[in-house]
Design a protein around this nucleic acid. Structure first.
Lengths: 132, 132
DNA sequence: CCCCTGCGGTCTCTAATGTAGACCAGGTCT
DNA sequence: AGACCTGGTCTACATTAGAGACCGCAGGGG
């Protein structure tokens, strides 16, 4: 991570560093959900992904998958049948990232109750007190 | 993660699920970088964070920290000195998330070389062939 | 004295980005 | 023939991020 002392040549905290660029692109709702879904459910076609990652628009799906493909995380395979079947799957690089993403997704599912509760408290507390 | 079979009541893959909301908000460049920086460097004041997470604007810094505070991940402490000192630190909930984020950040720093390389290959391969 | 700096923000303006939804070609089903 | 499926693209609109001005308060330099 390079913050405490510079041990790596890449540092996500540095705005100019190429790794920040990579980080910024992956630190995105749809990229992460797609990687997670491909990891959990395995290869999927375009329309399957659209159903498994609920709420993603076709445009964002195309766009995000293209970026993941470009970055070497995802493989896009066109089966020239009719109707054409396009299948997306994780490449080793993508799989290794997805594995590190799983604990994060689990954290969200385990702790979103606490987060929601904290928000209610925070949002509620501001109506009462502050009368100086 | 709830995708293979529904074992949890929360499912980040479901657009309507509250956990998706939580996920979408955290799956963001600045939120993640701030959590990581607070985890690595410990408590920091506003301007220190702005320096440690290079490139963040004051607006996004304020906005993101407020959300993290609202969600119970970060604590904001105002020391009523002069000039006022405002210190941000991780709460246990935030720390537990940050810990799961560390491997992801490390992945990015270790593999951004491969990603960059994959991109060059991808971007380069399209100039050559396709001349019809 | 006035100007400039640093602090922790807020406000406004503009540029970029995300979302919704129409559209498209090729082939199948009825 | 007309409607529907596939995997997308294109356009229009709304939201959002980023740049930079401004703010009050304090200290330091000229």
């Amino acid at each position: 991570m390079a913050h405490p002392q510079q041990h790596s040549e890449y540092d996500v905290f540095a705005a100019f560093c190429p790794s920040r660029n990579v980080f910024a692109e992956l630190a995105d709702k749809w990229s992460l959900l797609l990687l997670l879904s491909l990891h959990e459910l395995g290869e999927q076609r375009f329309s399957e992904l659209q159903r498994s990652v609920t709420g993603v628009s076709r445009k964002m799906l195309t766009q995000t998958l293209r970026e993941l493909e470009r970055s070497g995380l995802v493989r896009r395979t066109v089966h020239p049948e009719t109707p054409p079947r396009v299948v997306y799957g994780l490449l080793p690089l993508g799989r290794s990232l997805a594995e590190r993403l799983v604990p994060v997704a689990e954290w969200v599912e385990e702790n979103s109750g606490s987060v929601l509760e904290a928000r209610r408290v925070f949002d509620g507390s501001r109506c009462s007190s502050v009368a100086d």
